[in-house]
Amino acid sequence: MQQYFEVRWHGRGGQGAKTAALLFGEAAMETGKYIQAFPEYGPERTGAPVKAYNRLSDGPIRIHTQVTDPDVVVVLDASLLESINVTEGLKKGGAILVNTQEKAEVIKKKLGVTDAKVAVVDATKIAVEILKRNVPNTVMLGAMVKVTGALEWDSALASIEAKLSEKFRGRKEIIEGNVKAIKKAYDEVEVA
């Protein structure tokens, strides 16, 4: 069977879980991968728990099913740890990355994870500091790339920057701010 690298993003409506999945997918494609990026659609309400997914492979991807056993889980909002089983289906030897102020060890204990990597970064703080808004999604991409090692850093960063430039057409401070924040998350992510 073909090998897939699968990611599940947890966020709350409005935090940009879907956008993060799309950006990550496009960045992965720039490094030569075949990709899928898709949200789980339900009633969309700001603040309600949402999920989005990535599937990466070196060859064409034919399966069009939900991701049930992700290699990596990314949690954009730590309050979700209280209400959702974010480690559900997480593969042995995989990784879970949480946006939180807590230490990685604390989150590891809280989640009861023993056979996967647990990583934390305070993406909210970075976002508020640099972007002046609580938008942790792009910030988390930096930590994500570092923790998983799934993508080559330079080309991933270049791709994300290009996509942001397209989206924010010339609004330099937003594009540069995002890149700075992504780099900071890359540097500050802590693994247990």
């Binding site: 075949y34 990709i35 899928q36 990026a37 898709f38 949200p39 659609y41 991807i61």
Partner: peptide, 12 residues
């Protein structure tokens, strides 16, 4: 195309 499965899934 199939709703969401294809319509909203980004692919290469």
């Amino acid at each position: 195309t199939d709703a969401f499965i294809l319509s909203h899934a980004m692919e290469r």
